[in-house]
Design a protein around this nucleic acid. Structure first.
Lengths: 210, 210, 210, 210
DNA sequence: CATGAATGAGTATTCATTCAT
DNA sequence: AATGAATGAATACTCATTCAT
């Protein structure tokens, strides 16, 4: 009868995990919203943790693939690559705002699964950041900086708005799920990079010209 | 018989909420760690939510008082005031790293209590940020900027490292609860402010001289 | 695995509610007696109140159906109808003595559910009583009486012995769950009706003859 | 400060026991309503059961004393004595309607304390009923009857309206706590006794004359 | 007399999970 | 692929009671 129960389950699970947190959401809630039998969730994901793992890997596979796309053009310059990375990640998170908020939040829990994710995906993420940053510094495109502290600032600027999406809309009246926000926010980060990180604040076009 | 059950309960609750999340922590866990009877938690805080509210208000009362201290010196200049605010908040969160991580995480849940906190504390927080930023722009100390987007970036840089404390220590091998980190990170934010926000990157001493 | 858990639960619940009262009985007690898991009670009845409601409606549906049977023959005479009603209700309550005692007792509590039962079943019960009584008075079969006060006396005589079943057996050594008691008690009520209520104490047979 | 905490506690306890039942009422509820500390209840009544026992004995001491008053005039005739008994008990229960409802209800529970009450007070009550009834039958004032069944009917008529007080007011719109109801209801029982029980329905005055 | 602190045992309820069908 | 029945363990919470002050 039902076409794709699995994807409906995931979809509703993400919505609920987003608003109530993983621990605060019961399989019963999800089953009710997805209009399937509880036992069906076990059928697809073994158990609740399996559903969580599915969400994690779904998110990070795409998240890292967006980063890889940016790293792939590293030979065209670290600046361009970093700009690419920033806009890719912002657009990606903006498009998957429910999942993103939930994952960022859940990544701050000291659980077994988070440790596993860290030793795989987070290390890769760090590796990509480092690759771009170190190349940029090496080539003189970036001012010399501690790459660790740069990563902290970059990750903060990249992830936080999506964790705080409720705060943004309710308190600041900025809507982080709209394309307009992504565009504007990317511009802000670009300005920050140009004045704080890049040696010369050249725009991409100018680089091509020179 | 027991002396200060209440504060012991809070202390252990914060530790557990920090590592396991609010929903993921049972009153039984807390009672066991605090070595008190479960009913005693209800005696002091009525129910689990009451304990949560106590944590929230404890945090935000102090958090805002640190901000107020910075706003109080606004007449000595917006730059000095903002520097004051940044270092106050970083030191405060660094000192209360368990509570901070837990609060930041929990503030991203769509619950009744979070909505209440937002309509009181978050609005005040926004008000203080705006006051400093708008004064700075008005007096020509800061480059013209959308204060909303500045707040997003400031909050991102100020709060995120403490949500990501586990990531910092495990992946980046940076220890966010140590004084050394706070000192260094404050310097990084200062540099960012000077290059991106302030009209002239004068150090406080220089300002006095001129 | 188990065949008819639901009816076993109800059966044991009624026994325990009967002896200990609704509030004095825990779901654990019921689950133990019925030899099922506590969660199974929630599965069938949602919660404890759901089990109570089930008992209430089970009782009153049958109770009223016994009354309806008597009202259905009202055209054959109010006396016959009332005699029918009395014997039906006494036999019914005698057969369901546990449930009856518990329901009568619980109906004297000021709870939400009792109010709901009153606005549905008790009003119907009153309606049936009134119908017979007023017909009897109108047709001259009954002496003129305030129907309200008659209902009070009728209900008293009909219900009370089953609330006081323990008193009957322990103090008066009369066993209200035995057929013998029902037969005898019905005769007593008939005599009361004939001498106090009916205009001429004719037996049904005599009526047919005349 | 407080004058007579004890009687206030009893008073509020009776109200709550009346509406919610004994098991359904917590000492906390009582303490709150009576505006005293919970431990204070333990001080006066040892424990919850002690408070219950106090209510039981308070009720039955008075209840039996009302009966005794009627039995005391037995030499003036069984009819007069029974009439006395009926009106005494109705007025007494009417005046203590909260306590009465609660006691009648609680007497239908199979508990240790109820068994104790039965072996003392209920036996005495039965003894008084029997004394009057048997004297009346012996002297030819009453028609011959099984005294047990008479007691059942008498107790039913005497107690039930006060157990069902909520039903009376909500469904029948008869207010059992008002003097008017007591007067009227006593008259109804008198009529019942005269037509069903008494050999000649003489009024007290006539007896005196003859 | 009166109270605040504290407790152990109990409450109803909810949880994720299992399994036969 | 999907479901209804059933379960054990855990949940937050409430209970009557105790005791030092």
């Amino acid at each position: 009868m039902k076409k794709n129960s699995k994807s409906i389950i995931v979809q509703e699970a993400i919505k609920l995990f987003n608003t109530q947190g993983y621990s605060g959401t019961s399989l019963r809630d999800i089953a009710k919203k997805a209009n399937v039998n509880i036992a069906n969730i076990a059928y697809y994901f073994d158990n609740k943790q399996g559903l969580l793992e599915f969400c994690f890997t779904t998110f990070f596979e795409q998240y890292l693939s967006e980063m890889e796309e940016a790293v792939a053009v590293l030979d065209e310059g670290a600046m361009a690559s970093l700009r690419n990375l920033v806009s890719n990640l912002i657009y990606f998170q903006c498009k998957n705002i429910h999942l993103t908020r939930f994952i960022i939040r859940e990544m701050s829990i000291d659980s077994q699964i988070v440790r596993e994710i860290m030793t795989t995906y987070s290390l890769k993420e760090k590796f990509y950041f480092q690759k771009i940053l170190e190349r940029g510094i090496e080539k003189g495109e970036f001012k010399p900086h501690s790459s660790n502290y740069l990563i902290i600032q970059l990750k903060s600027l990249l992830n936080m708005p999506f964790l705080y999406s409720h705060y943004l809309s309710e308190v600041l009246h900025v809507l982080p799920h709209e394309r307009y926000f992504a565009d504007q926010y990317i511009r802000e980060i670009f300005q920050w990079m140009e004045s704080s990180l890049f040696t010369e604040a050249k725009f991409p076009e100018e680089i091509v010209v020179s």
